[in-house]
Design a protein around this nucleic acid. Structure first.
Length: 605
RNA sequence: GGACCCGUAGCUCAAUGGAUUAGAGCAUCUCACUACGGAUGAGAAGGUUGAAGGUUCGAGUCCUUCCGAGUUCACCA
């Protein structure tokens, strides 16, 4: 199709030249897809040229249409609506196009171009289990990796695990005080859940202590405001002081603390591994902040020498970004220890040294927009060549009908629980329909997982990543309409058709003597031909939503095709074969698109 | 307060780099094949695209102001 559109583009330029003696650069000529109400698949908009040509839009469109019809042998007809020139291709063009697509088993994968890109995602804290917000992150990261791969990149999926810091010490401390050495096995829960429970426990105790502390502070300092009292009490809560102490011990390498840390992190990793496996995501490279948190200090020294940073009298190091519309930002504490951005600077260098990638994507929530703006800007100022290729894939928060999720208020939707519930719904619906009575138990279980995750992933990925989204539990378990299950169902239906076609021994690509295609057939072929462009666009904009929406549109159009036209009831052998071939290709593209979303395509369901 | 982001049908979302009559799904109502998978299809109803200006042949999209929601502005991560 690409080539055919190219010839059309050239012919339009020639038309401009020959009719109006107007030189139009090829890159200024482009097409839109024709709206459904009108005949044709490609539309050329002439409005932008009316000024230069001094003619009315409809007149220009008419003249160019005539010129094209004579000069371009692929063209069948044109029609003009105001300034819109709608073009239709000959049947043979579509038949050739279909034949090419069917023969191309690599359809949807763009040529490898040798650029390397790292996608960092997931990056969990090791103090609590994964929740719904992490799911959006993980699904996005995984899907973007797949899309980039399909678009011809070498992709490295990385995960920077936040396994150290005061928050980790909090759950350790609560476990130490209240845990009685219980193990996940003894407690009968996943390791990440157990550790998360102690993080919650810490918070309970902390809150109680703040209240007590506040009361005694108030008695001593009646003049303080409520806010001041809260702040002071929080800083003086015994358990908080203990947590701070523990962090210091951890940094000193106190064997007891380290041993506890290793034990508890080990539990969390086991839990995460299990969750990652069930939700179907994976990584090529793990970084641990406990190993990277000291990085970046050399960079600070360098920046000081080059006067990019400056030092205050207390020894702390800063960068002044006020020229760039931002603030002054601390990059190293007065005591010489790192802050968050210090290690991010160092880690950026480390990643680049190890992989030498051209681009690097950070899949991180939009709460950290400012942080990444600063991080990238500093790296540019430090003259890092790779800084140009850095991108923050900033995604919006997932909200519940009851509002934003808050771990402290217990409104968090746990990832494992959610997947479990979805599986049950999938099992119920499947049982109601009774189409897989001959499946073995393990085949059933596989199917439930595929449907559950298909529904969940599609639900979270179909929305533009940049936008915040609403997670409505009732809607998410809906398997009708614009859902992942709908795409899977359409694919499975097509598989049934292909099975039957094989039984009937129908050849996909026979010499087709077809004079005219049905409108819905042309629409389908045209949409299929757009798939590779969609993949490219999705890669450029890092947006799985484009793939999801394309897939839905394709499934919907196919469903209409299926309802309007009979396949096996068609008596003309050529037409019957054609419809099977179209079905086959639609099935393949659906499967490919779903795989880019990290969703599996069962052949029966 | 500064910065950033968002506001489209009752609800959830689409709408290429500006373009013909702003499209889907859910929910509501109606209809459909003793044909290939009804987890489906067709139709009805539902909109002053938060408001007001501006630029343009043309604005949901760009610019300005206002209103409303959110995020962020730690020697936390």
């Amino acid at each position: 199709m690409k080539f055919i559109v190219q010839t059309l583009t050239q012919d339009i330029a020639r038309a401009f030249k020959s009719i109006y003696d107007y030189d139009c650069p090829l890159e200024n000529i482009s097409f839109q897809s024709t709206k459904k109400e009108f005949e044709g698949t490609h539309t050329f908009v002439v409005f932008p040229y009316t000024k230069a040509l001094g003619k009315k839009p409809a007149e220009i469109a008419e003249q160019i249409g005539q010129y094209l019809l004579q000069s371009n042998s692929n063209l069948k007809a044109y029609n003009v609506v105001q300034g819109f020139l709608n073009l239709s291709f000959k049947t043979q063009v579509w038949l050739n196009e279909l034949s090419k697509m069917v023969k191309n088993n690599n359809f949807g994968n763009l040529p490898w171009h040798g650029e390397k890109i790292m996608v960092e995602y997931s990056s969990p804290n090791t103090n609590k289990p994964l929740h719904l917000g992490h799911l959006r992150n993980n699904f996005l990261g995984y899907s973007v990796s797949k899309i980039l791969q399909a678009a011809g990149y070498d992709v490295i999926k990385s995960n920077v695990v936040n396994d150290r810091g005061i928050h980790i010490c909090k759950s350790m401390l609560a476990y130490q005080q209240f845990g009685r050495n219980e193990t996940p096995q003894e407690a009968g829960v996943k390791g990440d859940r157990l550790v998360g429970d102690y993080y919650v426990k810490y918070d309970q105790v902390f809150k109680e202590q703040v209240q007590t502390q506040k009361a005694s502070l108030k008695a001593q300092n009646p003049s303080l405001t409520d806010e001041q009292l809260n702040e002071k009490a929080a800083k003086e809560a015994p358990i908080f002081l203990q947590a701070q102490k523990m962090l210091q011990e951890w940094e000193k390498g106190n064997p007891e603390v380290i041993a506890l840390w290793q034990k508890m992190n080990g539990w969390v990793y086991e839990g995460f591994e299990q969750t990652y496996k069930t939700i179907g995501v994976s990584f090529d490279k793990f970084y641990y902040e406990s190993e990277t948190y000291l990085l970046g200090k050399d960079l600070i020294k360098q920046g000081l020498e080059n006067n990019i940073f400056f030092q205050k009298s207390d020894g702390s190091v800063w960068i002044d970004l006020s020229q760039d519309g931002l603030d002054e930002k601390l990059v190293l504490r007065a005591d010489g220890t790192s802050v968050y951005i210090t290690q991010d600077l160092g880690t950026a260098d480390l990643k680049f040294e190890q992989f030498g990638m051209n681009k690097s994507v950070y899949v991180v929530g939009n709460e950290q927009d400012y942080h990444f703006q600063v991080l990238f800007l500093i790296l540019k100022k430090l003259g890092r060549a790779y800084a140009e290729g850095l991108f923050h894939l900033s995604y919006g928060m997932v909200e519940l009908p009851s509002g934003r999720m808050k771990s402290r208020e217990g409104t968090v939707v746990d990832a494992d629980d959610l997947v479990h519930e979805m599986r049950q719904v999938a099992a119920e619906r499947t049982a109601e329909l009774g189409k897989i009575e001959d499946f073995s138990e393990s085949e059933r279980q596989d199917l439930y997982g595929q449907l559950a995750l298909g529904a969940l992933k599609y639900y979270l990925l179909r929305v533009d990543p940049k936008k915040k989204m609403m997670f409505n539990p009732e809607e998410s378990i809906d398997f009708q309409g614009n859902t992942g299950v709908y795409l899977q169902y359409t694919h499975a239906k097509i598989c049934a058709i292909i099975r039957k076609a094989q039984q009937l021994n129908i050849q996909l690509l026979r010499a087709e003597n077809i004079e005219q295609l049905a409108t819905v057939e042309i629409e389908l072929l045209s949409l299929l031909a757009q798939y590779q462009g969609t993949v490219k666009e999705a890669a450029q904009s890092y947006s799985p939503a484009l793939i999801a929406n394309y897939g839905y549109e394709l499934a919907r159009l196919y469903s209409r095709f299926y309802a309007e036209l009979s396949i096996f009831g068609e008596t003309d052998d050529d037409k019957r074969a054609l419809r099977v071939a179209i079905s086959y290709k639609v099935g393949q593209v659906l499967k490919h698109a779903l795989s880019l979303l990290g969703i599996e395509s069962p052949e029966r369901m």
